[in-house]
Nucleic acid binder design. Structure first.
Length: 662
DNA sequence: TGACCCCTACAATGCGGTAG
DNA sequence: CTACCGCATTGTAGGGGTCA
């Protein structure tokens, strides 16, 4: 076993000169928040500060500043975070500062129908800071709360004429951990920013993360917005946020160990030397954190450790997120010896641990987030990290140039940047998505009939020419409208008309979702524990019993490795010879392509090709057909997996094919 | 005689491409 | 993504030689 070991000196944040009324001395990055936000020079600020720097703590500072200076009007902020758990965490922190906080998530909104929108705006107006997720924002901005449903005429919501009223009540917006969003999600956020700037102009936007996204900053610059970047310096003096780290990188082969799991386990048992390390730590009252890349590995590890070591084990992964959970976190943590988790560890919750085994994660950002979780507020910590050969060799090469046994934090970050690759951000995708999102929002505003909404919509239309992709949608929608009105089959045969309309509805709907679509079923595992999870993942990674009537799966055991039980999906989101269309099925290549690539424009085009051949004859109006086809083909670049709504799964349990799982 | 080096053959490992 | 293949590179055991 090859490994590389070195130490990294403790990470400290220096204090600035500014001291606030409450007696805190501020760090540099916090000073921007403790100010009159309305007077800030720029519209957008990027805050770069490491995990543990006290970001959350400073999110309410604009409000404290207004109070401390006896402003007549108070300030209101919105914090947007990628997970609900993080939202709850932030709520707790800010409440301790005496701030009126409302968490707005699917769980805290209790009303249904028309009243849900009213509940949303009421919650916002009742607080000084609202914490929410981007999904709810996206739903709102695409008029999800306003558009009438079946049997309704129009929705006039109390105090909520349209989505812009929500933003009108805000002075500043903070996007926390924004590095987790992909190109399409970033495009969404940019459009929200541009639209509100067009309408009000007073809102200040903060993007906060430990790892800045250079490409996003570049993109803003290219579009005439110059954000200010505030980077928190580190030093050897000041507040200690992470103790000295001793890191051991362990080279693993893709073929043999495959992952951390293979490094820790041999023939289904913990390796002796690993067992010794863990047992010694527990007897010293240390807590241990184990982070896997794979959820399956995490679950299998749990069983093995429980069998071999006398310790309290707590597993916290995506599988547990929706589990009924009455215990509070502090309580769980205090009695736990070993925490097993996955990439879920990268966001939010802090564990007081000083010993950690981890898979390095896919990219630099994953690794940095994981490593930032260990040794918070401690003197020392020890980390064992498995890396694939390529990264290990990079590490070794660059480490040998430094030849130091102990690095300072900067040298460490620099070395990691050289060793790891970072995620590729496809910048050229962003303007296209911006155009699409803009169209979706404006189109949704068309359908409610308030004069003021029309005025706002007109104002927003000035943005259209910034993103020409908007017009692709506009023209396509015009043609579809003509087809919709074509009841006498003058343009197209009725059946084809119906499927075209159904496809367009499904396509439009995909913009109201912020994330991809998945089939979530109830899952029962470990003698009755109940949760909800992605059915596709469960079928591929576990041995299960399926109950179709109750939409429930019972996990009997986890597989040793992923199997391809699900062979494809059925969807209305693609136009194909047969409708609905199947992705995968007998075409294995297509299925793997779908599973493992972010963009599926070529699958879309391929299927559309056969649609064209088979459906052309049903069109009376040939010119319209030609033009329609051209427009639809232009959609290929924004066919990410988010466009696909899953109607059914195609499953193969062995010999027998069965495609009616849902 | 043992320490060391060189060489060779074969094994192991790694890598890039491809198909499913 | 994973399995597989062919090819390239690296690792290693063991033979053989030299030298002190």
């Amino acid at each position: 076993m090859e490994s590389l070991k070195f130490r990294v000196s403790k990470k400290c944040l220096p204090f600035g000169d500014k001291v606030i009324k409450q007696g805190f001395r501020l760090h540099k990055f916090q000073e921007i928040f403790y100010s009159d936000v309305a007077e800030l020079e720029k519209d957008v600020y990027f805050i770069v500060a490491p995990t543990g720097a006290g970001k959350t703590f400073s999110f309410a500072f604009p409000i404290l500043y207004a109070k401390d200076n006896n402003y007549l009007t108070s300030r209101r902020g919105l914090i947007v975070v990628p997970t609900n758990a993080l939202a709850e965490d932030i709520e707790k922190t800010l409440k301790e500062q005496g701030i009126k906080v409302e968490t707005i998530t699917g769980k805290t909104l209790t009303k249904k129908g028309k009243e849900r929108g009213e509940e949303l705006i009421e919650k916002l107006k009742n607080c000084e800071i609202a914490v929410t997720n981007p999904d709810i924002l996206n739903y709102m901005i695409n008029s999800g709360y306003h558009l009438p449903r079946k049997n309704e005429k129009f929705r006039h919501l109390k105090g909520f004429p349209d989505w812009s009223a929500f933003f009108n009540a805000l002075d500043y917006v903070i996007f926390d951990e924004y590095h987790l969003y992909d190109e399409e999600q970033i495009a969404n956020i940019l459009i929200w920013f541009l639209m509100t700037k067009e309408l009000f102009g007073k809102i200040k936007w903060f993007f906060v993360s430990a790892t800045p996204e250079e490409n996003l900053i570049e993109f803003l610059n290219e579009n005439g917005i110059t954000p200010e970047i505030i980077e928190q310096p580190l030093s050897n003096e000041g507040r200690v946020i992470q103790g000295e780290m001793e890191i051991e990188f362990i080279k693993i082969s893709k073929r043999i160990e495959r992952s951390l799991f293979g490094h820790l386990i041999e023939d289904g048992r913990l390796k002796e030397n690993i067992k010794d390390i863990i047992e010694k730590a527990i007897s010293n009252n240390e807590k241990i954190l184990i982070i896997f890349n794979s959820l399956r590995d995490a679950m299998r590890m749990k069983y093995i450790i429980e069998n071999e070591i006398d310790a309290e084990v707590w597993v916290n992964t995506g599988l547990q997120t929706r589990e009924e959970n009455n215990n509070n976190l502090d309580e769980i943590l205090s009695k736990t010896d070993i925490i097993i988790t996955t990439s879920k560890a990268e966001v939010g919750v802090n564990y007081p641990v000083s010993l950690c085994f981890m898979d390095s994660g896919l990219y630099l950002r994953n690794f940095m987030q994981r490593i930032g979780r260990v040794g918070r507020g401690m003197e020392k910590c020890k980390i064992y990290c498995t890396v694939i050969t390529k990264i290990f060799n990079n590490l070794e090469k660059h480490f040998n140039k430094i030849k130091k046994e102990k690095l300072n934090y900067y040298e460490f970050v620099d070395l990691m940047k050289k060793a790891f690759e970072d995620r590729e951000f496809k910048k050229d995708k962003v303007p296209k998505f911006c155009g699409a999102v803009l169209w979706s929002v404006l189109n949704s505003m068309e359908e409610y009939d308030k004069k003021l909404t029309y005025q706002r919509k007109e104002k927003l239309e000035t943005l259209r020419d910034k993103f020409p992709y908007y017009w692709v949608f506009y023209h396509l929608n015009e043609k579809i409208k003509r087809i919709e009105e074509d009841e006498d089959e003058e343009i197209v045969d009725e059946d084809v008309r119906e499927e075209l309309l159904k496809w367009w509805r499904s396509f439009k709907n995909s913009f109201i979702r912020f994330r991809g679509d998945s089939v979530i079923w109830k899952v029962i595992y470990e003698d009755g524990k109940e949760t909800e999870y992605d059915l596709l993942w469960i079928l591929d990674n576990a041995f299960v019993e399926v109950n179709k009537e109750n939409r429930t799966v019972i996990i009997r055991d986890f597989r040793e490795k992923r199997e391809c039980v699900v062979r494809g999906i059925i969807t209305f989101s693609l136009l194909d010879k047969d409708y609905p269309s199947t992705i995968g099925g007998i075409d294995k290549g297509e299925w793997f392509k779908f599973l493992y690539s972010d963009y599926i424009g070529d699958i879309f085009l391929q299927k559309f090709e056969s649609w064209k051949i088979y459906k052309e004859k049903y069109f009376e109006d040939e010119t319209l057909f030609e033009e329609l086809v051209k427009d639809i083909e232009l959609l290929a670049p924004i066919y990410s997996k988010k466009r696909i709504e899953i109607f059914d799964l195609v499953v193969d349990y062995g010999e027998v094919w069965c495609d009616d799982i849902l």
